[in-house]
Design a protein around this nucleic acid. Structure first.
Lengths: 171, 171
DNA sequence: TGAAAGTTTCAGTAGTTATTGAAAATATAG
DNA sequence: CTATATTTTCAATAACTACTGAAACTTTCA
């Protein structure tokens, strides 16, 4: 397998991963393409590589920008916009985890918490309500603990502090 | 908000969560319904509660069984099958994490590893190939570390050892 | 063994999400 | 300011996924 094939396979795999975890397949593929590319790419290059339409490319590039996974890069004298991916794997993981948490987990936990203040009007409800509240409480606790651990892991790792610095030096 | 409304809201929220994280919405709703229910429920009860068809109910019940999130329960003298959900939140988390990892993350990491043994035939490739391999290596490392941490968190928590025992005593 | 109760399968369809392509909007250079 | 390059939007449609309902199958009981 040569480099070109390996890159293709990577784009494919990353796309599948995205689809499985609730991220648009094309968005993940565009991300992979930029990750695998030494140089930043223009919209037209991305369209050509992935054989997707301009609209599709534009939409997914904007989504990636919005997540903070890629950045625009302007070349002096060029009118086109180029895109470059954040390439530090830990930083990527941090961004993805933080974004998904912000967008999905936090609202979820908040709405579960909202369910906790139900009032039992009927006497018969009491026992059942207690069991239900216990369940909600446990789930919320697991959610919290999971998030806390994630934070810890992502913050503690040394490479996330040093690699960005290193990259600045290398350029 | 009374208990009935809170349960509805819980089913709704859990369903949304499922959809966001790549699990069939109905599957998550059936799961939530069983979680919120003190008694085990039959297929017909589930169909009625969620207003879904028999086929749909059956499909998603089988999927939940397959994941190990619910169990069949037979009542003496009854021909119908009843279903009961695993209710320990930590055990649930463990099951979901383990299954998703087994089904999705492990194959992913294996295929990324497969990409590592690419051969650079052209001299020009060398440098680019090195960068690409570095990227792959980093991603694999992050994946591994994430999984290891998850294992640790889920194994260490005391409640996952003691709660199942406790439940046996309570019955 | 046959009828009744219950479960599973699956082709067709509904519903949802992603993609296209062309038009509108915006930005740049002369 | 005008022409041109580039990006953005969005209605139409394609592609995909989930759901239904009825038929086939299985199990149980008399």
């Amino acid at each position: 397998m040569n480099l070109e094939q390996a890159k293709r396979a990577f784009i494919d795999t990353w796309g599948r991963l995205g689809a499985e975890w609730g991220i648009n397949r094309t968005m993940a593929q565009v991300h992979a393409l930029l990750l695998a590319s030494r140089e930043p790419l223009s919209t037209d290059q991305i369209m050509a590589e992935l054989t997707i339409s301009r609209g599709n490319a534009n939409m997914n590039l904007r989504a990636l920008l919005d997540w903070g996974l890629i950045a625009k890069e302007l070349r002096p004298g060029e009118r086109k916009e180029f895109f470059r991916a954040e390439k530090d794997a830990w930083e990527m993981a941090r961004i993805i985890a933080t974004e998904r948490r912000k967008r999905e987990l936090d609202p979820l936990i908040r709405s579960l918490e909202g369910l906790l203040d139900l009032d039992e009007n009927k006497k018969a409800d009491k026992q059942e309500a207690a069991a239900f509240k216990q369940l909600l409480g446990d789930i919320i606790q697991v959610g919290r603990k999971g998030m806390a651990t994630l934070d810890l892991v992502l913050k503690i790792d040394q490479s996330s502090f040093f690699k960005p610095l290193l990259r600045l030096v290398k350029r």
